[in-house]
């Protein structure tokens, strides 16, 4: 067969299979809507109702501003928790990633163990960890911190492994060939090539964890999440809405800041 015909055939088959994909996805969504008795008319009307409620009841007032110092304190606590969890996770992930990476692993046994551990940590959502850990640690800061730590360690280990394998493979070979030992290679080839990228992942995880920490806080009764729940359950919607506003501002602020840092280090 001519190459041109071959590629034509290839693309024709491609088109057919993507069309088939669309049809399947369409059928699936229809089917699941029917199964869950999803009513699109009702969905729209209740969404409008919710919007209405937001605008009439859920907004900060002058009195709620008096709660700002308290909210600020809890927010700071939450941010600190997110940063602490991330930094601890970064330390552990660094070790796990060095052991788990194809380029720097000590042997395949520990490599598999490390990657397996990271995969388990990563595949349970942070909320899941919070629920599980509550059984042993009860409600409180520690549970929230550990939940974030677990999830973040799983995620960062994976990211760090890819960073190491992607950026230091060839220089590792060169240093080993010159007689450098394992720690020399880590220090002079692996770290310089991967640290900036790793820092970028850490910043990203801090952003994510500030958001997640508020959610986890609702569950474990700590930080800003706890305060939110307190006000919300007590129908102090104005105070609660102020908290949401503060969270949004803080998250945006942290994202901007970390983008700035990223621009400098990368």
């Amino acid at each position: 067969m001519q190459p041109v015909e071959q590629t034509n055939l290839f693309f024709r088959q491609r088109r057919w299979s993507s069309l088939l994909g669309f049809v399947l996805i369409g059928l699936l969504s229809l089917g699941s809507a029917w199964l869950t008795e999803f009513d699109s008319v009702r969905a729209v009307t209740s969404f409008l109702k919710a919007l209405n409620w937001l605008f009439t009841r859920f907004h900060p007032t002058v009195e709620s501003l008096a709660k700002l110092p308290k909210i600020g304190e809890k927010m700071a606590e939450t941010i600190l928790m997110a940063i602490t969890a991330t930094m601890m996770a970064a330390g552990i992930s660094m070790v796990l990633a060095i052991i788990g990476s194809q380029t720097t692993r000590v042997n395949s046994f520990f490599g598999t163990i490390s990657r397996g551990l990271a995969s388990v940590l990563r595949n349970v959502p942070v909320i899941g960890w919070a629920l599980i850990l509550q059984f042993s640690f009860g409600q409180g800061m520690i549970t929230g911190l550990l939940a974030l730590l677990f999830g973040t360690t799983g995620y960062l280990t994976r990211a760090f492994i890819e960073t190491i394998d992607g950026s230091s493979d060839s220089s590792v070979e060169a240093l080993r060939a010159s007689g450098a030992n394992y720690l020399h290679v880590i220090r002079h080839a692996v770290l310089p090539s991967s640290l900036p990228q790793m820092m970028s992942w850490i910043l990203y995880m801090i952003e994510t964890n500030v958001r997640d920490a508020t959610l986890v806080g609702i569950l474990t009764g700590s930080g800003i999440g706890f305060l939110f729940e307190l006000y919300y359950k007590g129908s102090y919607y104005n105070h609660a809405s102020l908290i949401v506003l503060v969270i949004i501002l803080v998250v945006i602020g942290i994202e901007t800041l970390s983008n700035q840092i990223r621009r400098i280090i990368l």
Binding site: S168, S170, S171, E173, A174, R176, A177, S178, G179, A180, N181, H188, A189, P192, S193, P196
Partner: peptide, 19 residues
């Protein structure tokens, strides 16, 4: 390791730490 110090290696893709 000691013997490797006596043998230098040069690579097609240079294998430097670019940063």
């Amino acid at each position: 390791r000691q013997v490797r110090t006596q043998i230098g290696m040069v690579f097609q893709h240079y294998n430097l730490v670019n940063r």
